[in-house]
Design a protein around this nucleic acid. Sequence first.
DNA 1: GTGAAAGCGCTAACAC
DNA 2: GTGTTAGCGCTTTCAC
Lengths: 346, 346
Amino acid sequence: MKKKPTIRDVAARAGVSIATVSKFINSTQRFTSAVERKVQAAIDELQYHSNPLARSMITGKTGAVGVVILDIGNPHFTNVVKGANRVALEHGYNLLFVDTDENQSREEELLDALSRRVDGLIVSTRMPEEQLDRLLASGKPVVLSGRVAPKGVPSIGIDAHAAAYMIGELLVKQGHRKIAYLGFAPARPDTERYRGLSESLAEHGLEVTRYEVGGPTIVEGERICSAVLLSKDKPDAIVCYNDMVAIGFMGGAKALGVSIPEDISIVGIDNIPFGRFTSPALTTVDVQSERLGEEGMRLLLRQIAGDAPPVTGHVAIEPRLVMRDSTRIRPPAAVAAPAKVKGRAR
Amino acid sequence: MKKKPTIRDVAARAGVSIATVSKFINSTQRFTSAVERKVQAAIDELQYHSNPLARSMITGKTGAVGVVILDIGNPHFTNVVKGANRVALEHGYNLLFVDTDENQSREEELLDALSRRVDGLIVSTRMPEEQLDRLLASGKPVVLSGRVAPKGVPSIGIDAHAAAYMIGELLVKQGHRKIAYLGFAPARPDTERYRGLSESLAEHGLEVTRYEVGGPTIVEGERICSAVLLSKDKPDAIVCYNDMVAIGFMGGAKALGVSIPEDISIVGIDNIPFGRFTSPALTTVDVQSERLGEEGMRLLLRQIAGDAPPVTGHVAIEPRLVMRDSTRIRPPAAVAAPAKVKGRAR
DNA sequence: GTGAAAGCGCTAACAC
DNA sequence: GTGTTAGCGCTTTCAC
């Protein structure tokens, strides 16, 4: 609990002025080697570390960047963080992150608190635009993640429409006809995912049945399972808002004795690492989570540096279909098809 | 990019002194309602937010606590964070966390940077003790997580010995005799886990074969799989350093055509949420990750408050066995048992 | 090369 | 009740 030494202590011990010490620490200037030695010695002996708060106050820079995530329990986000962390460190920045999931109510406050401690942030939030505006007006560089930003704010995300569209195409090609979407409306990307899927199906004269989960989580996917599987018009394929929902749903299905993909195909979005280890392995769309974080951080860092022309558009990362075992080609001679079904090729 | 208003701007606009504004913001004092109204109006019009850095510099408090984790990609740690976050928020603290995984080398620097921005931290690290000492000497309250702290530093973790011991008992009871441990020596809890398992087996006259994974991760579990399964003395049960390794191992086993638990039993430690959804569902030991975070944060907050007598010991959380489907009773008439095997009851 | 002095934005005595 | 003032620990002109 000893008091931390200040720059003054170092100066006194080294017999120089505090200005000299300051310049030495920041390598702003060189001194005679005698002086440098003395200062360095004093620093070592005192175990002096400069106080970043004081420095920040005056320079206006903190050397840290922040990432605000919705739910750190979702591996998609942790991978985004991993990616962001890597490039932040490469550029000499420390990454601080906060998880807003636990209390949406205090989100703005949390964000505000964080924004004052960093040089810029990557924000992933469901906040309405007008609240967002206040954050943006704060003058800190911000990159929005997972949603398209208003006005001239850079943002990054996957092409959610394309992701869902390719899922639609896959399922139709595999012979599925009754396709359901397990959506989570409050999430920003939900709309685009739903649209992408709908449009794909519409082009084949099909419609999507929408179900609403209570959150983009495993438990919610599990919870909604019975409602979907026991409905009188059971779908033959399910596309989930994300992998978490899909995994939960698969767990629920197993408990209900429904087998995947024999009875029903299921596909997620995100490509979280665990999708490979479910039973069956989850077919999904890779959104390149880590790259998302990396590119987002690059965007942010570029803004902070201010040298390059500020990027203001939306960067869309291309999704990629990941075929695994939770979907399969639906046998042409379908199950409980009652009357004459118009020819289903292949 | 407009300049942020300062307390002086507010004071000027409201026609009062900056001291008044300061006291008003912090509700340190009440004023005549006329004054309060004016000040509030000025704050609103200017969209003033006080600068926490400046405040921190003088009060010495930041209103934030930090958590340092080894790998945010491991759901065990994300759950610890969740728990810690919850109680931090309940107590009016913001939680910042950093992931040191990406560069162990800069860990100390990262830690130092973080420690200056928070009122205390929960640290989970593999740092040797002498490095740790320097951190502890910094005067910030610290709680060590996942290892027993030296001297009078509070620490928290599961009873790793007990966790591994109960796994040993289970496996022996189930009739397994050739038990292997997939350890990760650099991790602090590894030693205790290995010891717990060894002791349990020793009491039954058995020995544990130790393998070393390259990291406590899925990929490493997957990677080591063939070496273990294709060894000439294939074990009949594997206990893994943690669930991540176990999940990876199971994936590898599946690829090799080895079926679990028929051919080999496998058990993890941590009880990460995904363990329920692997195939088969993973038998593991619940370490109560969230509670670990919660209790750790309580310990920390108590230290920061300084009112209660400082806790200095090690808090051990009791582990609980979670039986699922990756282990099973081994048939008495064992597989390739060559000669007469002494009666194995049930 | 080196140091003195003026703050960064704010809080905390202490006066009035 | 309200204002004055002295810093928190540091950086940064600007003289010497």
